[in-house]
Computed example of a mutant assay.
Amino acid sequence: MDALNDKKAILNRLKRAEGQIRGIQNMITEEHDCVDIITQLSAVRSSIDRTMGLIMAENLQNCLANPVDDSTEQAAILQKAIDMIVKK
């Protein structure tokens, strides 16, 4: 998959999550059952986590496929990517 398709896929995931959030807002307004709301919130969180994983994986692949010439700088870039993954 190329970068343009990756970007479209990520944006589509975010738009879907945005729609889910709006749906949850409506559920709260309409006083739906707490369990149903929490279930939907959990689904959104899971969706966002997967999207973050895709973005981090793409970033890491880019770091490895296109290394910078300075090995110290490359190590710092890779460490930053690793820190993002561990922080997640």
Score class of each variant (00 low, 15 high):
M52E: 06
K15R: 13
S42P: 03
Q79I: 12
I85D: 01
D83L: 12
C63Y: 13
K80A: 14
I21Q: 09
N26I: 11
V44D: 05
L14R: 04
S46E: 14
T39F: 08
Q20K: 10
N5M: 13
M52A: 07
A43R: 06
Q79W: 10
A75Q: 15
G19F: 00
G53L: 07
A75W: 13
I38P: 07
L14V: 09
L11S: 11
A9P: 00
G23S: 02
G19C: 00
K87N: 13
S71H: 06
D49V: 06
I48G: 01
D6N: 09
E30T: 02
K8W: 10
I77M: 08
H32Y: 08
Q40D: 06
N62R: 15
L41M: 11
T51E: 09
T39N: 05
K8S: 10
L4R: 10
D70N: 12
C63Q: 13
S42V: 04
N26R: 02
G53W: 06
R50D: 13
R13E: 10
L60F: 11
N62W: 11
R22I: 04
I10M: 07
M27T: 03
Q61M: 12
K7Y: 09
A75H: 09
V44R: 01
S47H: 06
C34S: 08
I28N: 04
Q61Y: 01
A81H: 08
R22A: 03
E30N: 07
A75P: 11
M1K: 00
S47M: 10
E58L: 07
A65W: 02
N59M: 15
Q74E: 11
A65G: 05
Q74V: 12
N62M: 15
G23H: 00
N66V: 04
R13H: 11
S71A: 10
I82F: 10
R13I: 07
R16K: 12
S46R: 12
T51M: 04
N12E: 08
E18I: 05
E31D: 11
E58A: 08
C63A: 15
K88T: 14
I21L: 06
I38F: 01
D83M: 11
D6Q: 11
M84W: 02
I48W: 00
L60G: 01
K80P: 13
L41N: 01
I77V: 15
C63G: 03
E73R: 13
D2R: 01
V86F: 09
Q25A: 04
A57R: 02
V86Q: 11
S71I: 15
E30W: 02
C34W: 04
